[in-house]
Simulated scan of single mutants.
Amino acid sequence: MAASSDVKRNYHVFLSFRGTDVRHGFLSHLYVALDQKGIYTFVDSEELRKGEEISPTLVRAIEESRIAIIVFSENYASSPWCLEELLKIMECKEQNNLMVFPVFYKVEPREVRGGRESYKRAMDNHESKFGKEKVKRWKKALS
């Protein structure tokens, strides 16, 4: 595994978010504000989201970023895609010193960490489809 100094950093910031919740409001304003400050930011497009596994393009973008901003919103945990992205972000945090900043958009941190309300419902729904082990990894990443 590459040391953090060996990792190629193409992006200043990688934005992780649930598109249906924030893409055309909060996220677009955040992106513009970062861009105006000269911060090179990766924001995925809907075309990259095919199937249930995150694409190699997104994996590479996460690996090549200095900072990840995770926008936790009401429906973030309902997306297996977002949760897989979160796992990759947390892996890069541990292995490549990726800096991670959470943003809580219309949810409380305790809801995300503690698996309350919409996050608990999402995890309960995922368990039947993806199994307990995968959901356990997602819960750990959320905490």
Score class of each variant (00 low, 15 high):
residue 1 M to V: 05
residue 1 M to F: 09
residue 2 A to S: 12
residue 3 A to I: 04
residue 4 S to A: 15
residue 4 S to W: 14
residue 5 S to L: 11
residue 6 D to N: 12
residue 6 D to M: 04
residue 6 D to S: 11
residue 7 V to N: 02
residue 7 V to D: 09
residue 9 R to A: 04
residue 11 Y to M: 01
residue 13 V to S: 09
residue 13 V to A: 08
residue 14 F to Y: 13
residue 14 F to R: 09
residue 15 L to R: 02
residue 16 S to I: 04
residue 17 F to S: 04
residue 19 G to Q: 05
residue 23 R to H: 06
residue 23 R to G: 03
residue 24 H to A: 07
residue 25 G to S: 14
residue 26 F to C: 02
residue 28 S to A: 11
residue 28 S to Y: 05
residue 28 S to T: 14
residue 29 H to E: 03
residue 29 H to L: 12
residue 31 Y to M: 02
residue 32 V to E: 14
residue 33 A to Q: 08
residue 33 A to E: 11
residue 33 A to F: 07
residue 35 D to F: 11
residue 36 Q to N: 15
residue 37 K to M: 02
residue 38 G to Q: 06
residue 38 G to P: 00
residue 39 I to S: 02
residue 39 I to P: 00
residue 41 T to I: 07
residue 43 V to S: 08
residue 44 D to Q: 03
residue 46 E to W: 03
residue 49 R to P: 14
residue 49 R to V: 10
residue 52 E to I: 10
residue 53 E to L: 08
residue 53 E to W: 06
residue 61 A to D: 12
residue 61 A to M: 06
residue 62 I to G: 06
residue 65 S to D: 06
residue 67 I to T: 10
residue 67 I to Q: 04
residue 68 A to T: 05
residue 70 I to K: 01
residue 71 V to A: 05
residue 72 F to A: 04
residue 72 F to S: 03
residue 74 E to D: 05
residue 75 N to H: 10
residue 77 A to D: 05
residue 78 S to P: 08
residue 81 W to M: 06
residue 81 W to Y: 09
residue 83 L to M: 12
residue 83 L to K: 08
residue 83 L to G: 05
residue 85 E to Y: 00
residue 85 E to W: 02
residue 86 L to P: 01
residue 86 L to K: 01
residue 88 K to W: 07
residue 89 I to E: 01
residue 92 C to S: 07
residue 92 C to W: 04
residue 92 C to T: 13
residue 93 K to M: 06
residue 94 E to T: 15
residue 96 N to A: 09
residue 96 N to P: 01
residue 100 V to D: 06
residue 101 F to A: 04
residue 104 F to K: 07
residue 105 Y to C: 08
residue 105 Y to D: 07
residue 106 K to W: 14
residue 106 K to A: 02
residue 107 V to H: 03
residue 107 V to R: 00
residue 108 E to A: 13
residue 108 E to W: 00
residue 109 P to H: 00
residue 112 V to H: 03
residue 113 R to S: 10
residue 114 G to T: 06
residue 114 G to A: 07
residue 119 Y to G: 02
residue 121 R to F: 03
residue 123 M to K: 04
residue 123 M to P: 11
residue 124 D to P: 09
residue 126 H to L: 11
residue 127 E to A: 13
residue 128 S to A: 08
residue 129 K to W: 01
residue 130 F to S: 02
residue 130 F to K: 03
residue 131 G to K: 06
residue 133 E to W: 06
residue 134 K to Y: 00
residue 134 K to M: 02
residue 136 K to S: 14
residue 136 K to A: 15
residue 136 K to D: 12
residue 136 K to M: 07
residue 141 A to N: 01
residue 142 L to K: 01
residue 142 L to H: 06
residue 143 S to H: 10
